[in-house]
Nucleic acid binder design. Structure first.
Lengths: 274, 274
DNA sequence: TAGATTGTTAATCGATTAACAATC
DNA sequence: TAGATTGTTAATCGATTAACAATC
């Protein structure tokens, strides 16, 4: 009974329940059988194991993926490398990369050493070799079918489609209840409720939520069930991640906050110069 | 001579120079006096100190600001807290917060303990008290005059202005060479070249770059000189940070990459369920 | 060869976790 | 009081750095 409840809410036990009142008639919070059975708080290890299915965002990170800060830097290296290529530069050293990206040269070498022997001592890294190696590491070569929910934002912007193409995200479907029947980026716009079905059909793994109406837990659940692994949420709605889906928040508010938090505590203003 | 060159390029020495060829006539790269004088590579410590002004993005982080991961979590806590407030919940425990946000309860407590005694043992954290404390810690109470370069994106969206308001960023000026003379969000649009001047006048510290034309190193330099400390770049142009300015990349490409990097290495697709 | 730069190791630093006494 | 939950400490884990032998 309580197990079922807990499983539905995707939590590890009553102590994580956020409902204002327990809907299990006949149980006062203090008499919750889970609490009684498991004893002292914070020792729910074995219970957690019993509830694999309920494991939410608190699940530990899988080891295989690049750590977030390292991944971020890879992105930076890649951009610098591409820029160098465009300027006709043939090799870069870790010093140069470090300077361009804002990290120490030793960290550059360490990051890049994970790519497997792509520099030559005394010479530096071949720009083209490096570019390829990083793209391979980030798995940018593989096409990633992507569904886009909320067509409006996609309609005008050419740059949006370019950005998708740059990371090999191919549009597998566009969904918007308003635009129904219309065409965007050469694709027919479908009602949102068909998103799951199309996702399955096209084997999409990435989703972008670009309108408030589509940024709901229900939509996420539906998409997750259909095979979506990563969601970029461009709306200000806050969505909880789960064991299966990764969510990246990309609305203006989140971006601003991320920026402002990095400002030093002191007076916010630099002395104007010049 | 070389010092001047190095200072202008904002690098720590010839080994970080990215120019295809040295423009200092008469010096072959191998005969660069800096290299000769300083001996073996990677031992530029004292030289770095001599070149305070040239210190670029590689400068170490100031201690006072919240560490990036902690800041991110603060943002999450804040949102959950606000949501709780809206639902009429009066207290939350670290377990509940941890579950909602996706981190362990001990980390929640550690993060929140930096706010100084805002929970009560056996009871949890008062939602309202916590909300206030986090906003104070993130300095969201203080108004931050913000300049917006590239008016088009601002024109339509109400949500954009709401997002700015939520973090207390007040629009101090809108700049766009196309929209010249028009009005956006109640403000007259000025030509981009006036951005520095207005920044100084309104004492702005935050800038948002929303059009490709404005996302150039020159504009950044100008803004930095005028007192801007933090820049949110919504365009795909890659901009190097410097000692004075913090840059957050917010274009679709960067967001997608950040998301995709976090996907595990294995097969990209979840087994469809249901 | 002499000089520069890689890849890698050991040392350091910082962030997360588990545990628990103090508190309500 | 008994049960729950905080704030904090020490232990662990992971990421960054400095140093250097190997290599071009």
């Amino acid at each position: 009974m309580v197990y079922k409840c807990v499983r539905e809410l995707r939590i590890a036990g009553c102590h994580e329940c956020m409902e204002p009142a327990c809907h299990l008639a006949g149980w006062r919070a203090s008499a919750c059988p889970l609490r009684v059975r498991l004893g002292a708080s914070d020792k729910f290890g074995e219970f957690r194991d019993m509830l694999e299915g309920a494991k939410g965002a608190a699940a530990p990170r899988r080891g295989s993926a690049l750590a977030p800060p390292a991944a971020q830097r890879m992105d930076w290296y890649l951009r610098v490398t591409e820029e160098c290529g465009a300027r006709g530069v043939l090799t870069v050293s870790s010093h140069q990369l470090g300077r361009a990206v804002g990290v120490r040269s030793s960290l550059v070498r360490r990051d890049l050493s994970g790519l497997g022997r792509c520099g030559t001592p005394g010479r530096g890294y071949g720009v083209e070799v490096l570019r390829r190696a990083i793209r391979r590491r980030l798995r940018l070569g593989k096409a990633r079918p992507t569904v886009w929910l909320g067509g409006a934002r996609l309609a005008g912007a050419q740059s949006t489609r370019e950005a998708l193409a740059a990371v090999n995200c191919t549009l597998a479907g566009v969904f918007d209840d308003g635009y129904k029947g219309g065409k965007v980026a050469g694709l027919t716009v479908h009602p949102v409720k068909r998103a799951g079905e199309e996702t399955r059909k096209k084997r999409a793994t990435v989703a972008v939520l670009a309108s408030e109406e589509t940024a709901t837990p229900e939509v996420i659940q539906e998409l997750a069930g259909a095979g979506i692994r990563a969601v970029l949420n461009l709306t200000s709605a806050r969505l909880a991640a789960s064991a299966n889906v990764m969510i990246e928040q990309g609305d203006l508010g989140s971006l601003l906050l991320r920026l402002l938090c990095r400002l030093p505590l002191g007076e916010g203003r630099a002395k104007p110069r010049a």
